[in-house]
Design a protein around this nucleic acid. Structure first.
Length: 153
DNA sequence: GCCAACGTTGGC
DNA sequence: GCCAACGTTGGC
């Protein structure tokens, strides 16, 4: 089992939205590196840190789980979608989606400021590589974030 | 295949 | 809302 972190702008899709829906199709990823992680490495049962970006303060707010293998992201073929990609062909889809299911909210969010201030988390992709919206997380880092969420800041 | 221009992400 | 960092595009 692998561990991941996905970013979402809560104005667009929050962890509360996922809780209500229980399950969602994680569509709209339009970055090749993120796409490759989803396409090549994500598998059913993988655990996912759910991160709210563009919110003050940004941070990890909960846990989700991968509930499907990768499949062609339908929004790439939808002319009305902001994620429409005219260069993607039906017989060779460029972008993939996976299903995510809600697992839980963290008792306390783990803010980016705290992550950045934690020595053991300096190697997180989140810290080292800005602007990536789907990224792997090591088991150790995943568990440390969960531990931090149980403590009051 | 280089690289300038442009677009997007996301912290602040 | 600003803008730095980064990815993508396209002219040459």
């Amino acid at each position: 089992m692998r561990y991941w972190l996905v970013k979402s702008e809560p104005d667009e899709f929050s962890l509360d939205n996922l809780k209500e829906l229980k399950k969602t199709s994680w569509e709209g990823v339009r970055n090749y590196q993120a796409r490759n992680f989803m396409r090549d490495e994500m598998a059913v049962g993988d655990r996912v840190l759910f991160y709210h970006s563009r919110e003050r303060p940004p941070g990890v707010v909960g846990v989700a789980e991968v509930a499907s293998g990768p499949y062609a992201d339908p929004s790439q073929f939808d002319v009305g979608s902001p994620y429409f990609d005219a260069k993607s062909r039906a017989d060779a889809p460029r972008w993939v989606a996976v299903d995510l299911v809600y697992v839980r909210h963290l008792r306390n969010r783990v803010g980016l400021d705290r992550i950045k201030a934690t020595e053991a988390l300096q190697e997180m992709v989140l810290v080292k590589r800005p602007r990536l919206s789907v990224m792997p997380v090591s088991r150790e880092h995943f568990e440390l974030i969960l531990e931090m969420s149980r403590e009051v800041e």
